[in-house]
Write a protein that binds this DNA or RNA. Sequence first.
DNA 1: CTGTTAGCGCCTTCAA
DNA 2: TTGAAGGCGCTAACAG
Lengths: 346, 346
Amino acid sequence: MAGPGTVMPTIREVARLAGVSVATVSKALNDSGKVSEALRERVETAARTLGYAPHASARSLRSGATRILGLLVADITNPFFLKLVEHIEQLASAAGYSVILCNSGEESEREERHLRMLLSQRVDGILLIPVRDRWRGRIGALARLPQPLVLVDRMLEGLEADSVTIDNRMAGYLAGEHLIRLGHRRVAIVMGSPEHPIARHRLDGFREALATGGIALDEQLIARNCFNEEAAYRSVLALLDRAERPTAILATNNHLTLGLLRAVTDRALAIPDALSVIAVDDLPFSAIMRPGLTVVMQPSAAIAEAAISGLLDRIGGRNPEDGARAVVLEPRLAVRGSTAAPPSRA
Amino acid sequence: MAGPGTVMPTIREVARLAGVSVATVSKALNDSGKVSEALRERVETAARTLGYAPHASARSLRSGATRILGLLVADITNPFFLKLVEHIEQLASAAGYSVILCNSGEESEREERHLRMLLSQRVDGILLIPVRDRWRGRIGALARLPQPLVLVDRMLEGLEADSVTIDNRMAGYLAGEHLIRLGHRRVAIVMGSPEHPIARHRLDGFREALATGGIALDEQLIARNCFNEEAAYRSVLALLDRAERPTAILATNNHLTLGLLRAVTDRALAIPDALSVIAVDDLPFSAIMRPGLTVVMQPSAAIAEAAISGLLDRIGGRNPEDGARAVVLEPRLAVRGSTAAPPSRA
DNA sequence: CTGTTAGCGCCTTCAA
DNA sequence: TTGAAGGCGCTAACAG
């Protein structure tokens, strides 16, 4: 029968059953100090018999470490972040850490609440994908965190903290370069706010790549301030309904890509014959899409790895006080079927 | 500068700064006992000044409760489970609980390790989506858990524990009934092992619905033991290459649906004109599929809600020892474009 | 090698 | 209404 009927035994009961002192039990179970083989076995048997599991709170209180990491995600519905969560949980677990997962849903109040909680829990370290807006007033609090912090995917201007990000300018550049090489000249971009560094950098890189090909990005073909699928959908419809339709469109993230695809489907345009589509961020299940989506992929496994190992280094006291470490990883172009040469002029 | 430079103040330093005793600080900050308004404000100011956050481990050690829930998921890459995670985190957080997320990746050893850890953490309650295989030897351990446990989505034969599941027979039935009404007579099913209750119940319901329409499910058209997308893909190819191709196929879960769709695309069959496709479990981003996928949806929000509220009830000591509570929720058919009447005979 | 002991930070009697 | 003191379970320092 499950339920609070049973109570967890303490180290003293294990000690009593094994006929030794509590200190010996502690040492035997933790491989610390010297304990004779005979006793260690008696202790382990006793512990197993009683179903003993050490009380993590008591241990933390004494030792000052919880072996818990806080993972604070801006928006868990974003498949890219989700992938990161998956990898991070896996890596943390392999390193002997548990993960408290928190989702901010892009609301800074939620992030703040969660952060306070993680502080109370005295997690040994925090991985933070910060919310997009209204973080300005809070970088002070972040800077004063007593435990190591690693920013993931998004940097925070004015906060000197470790970070793992990708080269977003490069992401935009790769997309632009690919389209240019295919011969596109009238291309569009669907993006969020230029206020957000990530979107801005992707735009910059995109524009730069076009310029390299002698093309100036038409300001009319930049759909800014699309913050969700719906906004992207409407903006793309507008782009497609122009007299001179673009021959290719870049969506700068996951959510926007969905809106983009929906709009293209609504207008019954064939991909890639009538229109090339390219996106930053892969979609889950893009495998079932025909044609496959050409994307600039973010190396989620590598990001997770860099974030965790950087954090554990700090926790372990390695990488001492020599300022913030900024790891920047390279995105990669995956060409699939959604991009092709532009339709020949009618 | 982030990092372990700063140390978190204790309740004693708050007390000193406020010029009161630690007991008063505790009472003031927790609304317990009587504290004069003047003191409470002095205390709160002091706490804020110092950036004090109570040490959760110390509190747990003393109080016996951690306000942490363990969420142990068989496979976080399954979009349906993911949806549950999302809802559960949200609801737990709203109720003042944190969530330690663990992913077993369908490996019972990982599940076991995680469970031991959650035990050590003395989480107040556990939500468990158990791995599919090799759980038999472990129901003893689960039954003896000192904290409340709620099984989610999957029951465990022989374990008397609270559970929240859906009516899987009904799920199969809804799919079968829909196809029958459309006039299909030669239908196929792609499923996992009949050993697994969920798959078996869905098959049973499906068969029953067909029988109601006077159709006997052809044993040749049951693709059993498909445990992943790849297996489903190959099985469906085989089904489609038969002399007498089925006019409709049901995939009994998320992963299998992907394999099914891939196979259909490979054979260049038009959905729903040449073949109707129906699935249990919605796909994320099914919104961008054209035609939309007709699915039997699991009410993930309701499942999460029932699971959390059931668990919190147990934690709160409500629902006392009156045996296991089994909540069974109803799936729902969402008709979209992937199903239609069968092609008329050539 | 093993045992004894102090104390981590907090909350909850109990006394003033 | 406020303060003093004990102890939750564990580990680390020290004694034997």
